[in-house]
Design a protein around this nucleic acid. Structure first.
Length: 284
DNA sequence: CATATGTCCTGAGAGC
DNA sequence: TGCTCTCAGGACATAT
């Protein structure tokens, strides 16, 4: 489930490690199927060891550990991946352990960073500086949802025949939006999730753009959403709080928080749940 | 090219 | 109580 706000929160939580040197890299043997590591575990372990962490960045829903020399370790948590400095929820789903050495004055401190993933759909990939550079210029992934301009968003999607909800999930168009926040931002914008992109007018694109920025930044302030399965946690293993502020997601049957008489409704689009209010998100 | 569908994965919860 | 089944949705592979 981690989408842009959760991944942003994870990244911010890793800030204490910046400047530290990686002293140990351990891919943990677990009864679970190993997650994908590219090029492979041994190569990644060799390349990581002794490197300094220069920055932690986010690209869409991916966490990028920038190392000295500009090489990068890119972590995609997908559904259940977490990056933790403390208290993993279970030992058996730990996948990767990194040990960092941090110097503060004369004292040296060791800290661990774990990648934990219950379902194991996550991916970890090593990018050399050169490979990263060329992939950036070829730009396989779309502009980040918090960096894209209104014009870019409109030009990317306005000719698409897809439903707007489905198009918002396309990471090649705009990166960072997932199933939960797509429903939330369409509700705030007052747009029916099944409206075709090519049927939206200029003021609706503008409303959607504003709603996208509003919902995502609000969710970051609350440190993301921890759903009923309780999986998502920040780096210190604390739950997010934005689930208490969801307007429609997973609220089917509840009264609309905006209009009189509307009921939040669940539909399925592209095999995913969508939540909206038929009363104030009109088809036309 | 654009769009739609299938696939992977684990554990919670429903229903019998 | 204990079993089987369905569902949750990240990204990508494959099909149309």
């Amino acid at each position: 489930m981690p989408e842009l706000p959760e991944v942003e929160t994870m990244c911010r939580g890793l800030h204490p490690l910046v400047g530290g040197t990686i002293t140990r890299v351990e891919f943990l043997r677990s009864p679970c199927r190993p997650i994908g590591v590219r090029p492979d575990r041994r190569a990644v372990r060799q390349r990581m060891a002794g490197r300094r962490l220069v920055a932690v960045e986010r690209v869409g829903k991916r966490v990028v550990l920038v190392l000295d020399g500009d090489d990068r370790l890119v972590i995609e948590p997908r559904m259940t991946g977490l990056l933790l400095l403390a208290d993993p929820p279970s030992a058996e789903h730990l996948r990767l352990e990194l040990e960092f050495s941090l110097t503060q004055g004369r004292t040296e401190q060791l800290r661990k960073l774990w990648y934990w993933d219950r379902r194991g759909l996550g991916q970890i990939a090593w990018w050399s500086a050169e490979a990263w550079q060329s992939s950036q210029t070829r730009s396989r992934i779309g502009p980040d949802a918090l960096l894209i301009t209104l014009d870019e968003l409109r030009h990317k999607l306005q000719n698409s025949r897809r439903a707007i909800k489905v198009a918002l999930l396309d990471q090649h168009a705009v990166a960072g939006i997932g199933n939960l926040y797509a429903s939330e931002m369409l509700f705030v914008a007052g747009i029916h999730p099944a409206r075709r992109c090519d049927a939206l007018n200029r003021s609706q694109w503008s409303a959607l753009y504003d709603a996208m920025r509003h919902v995502l930044s609000e969710a970051i302030e609350y440190e993301g959403s921890t759903l009923s399965d309780g999986t998502y946690r920040n780096a210190l293993s604390h739950a997010g709080r934005y689930q208490n502020h969801h307007r429609v997601y997973a609220r089917a049957g509840e009264p609309c928080p905006r209009c009189d008489g509307g009921t939040v409704t669940r539909i399925v689009q592209a095999q995913r749940s969508t939540f909206f209010c038929p009363g104030c998100q009109r088809r036309k």
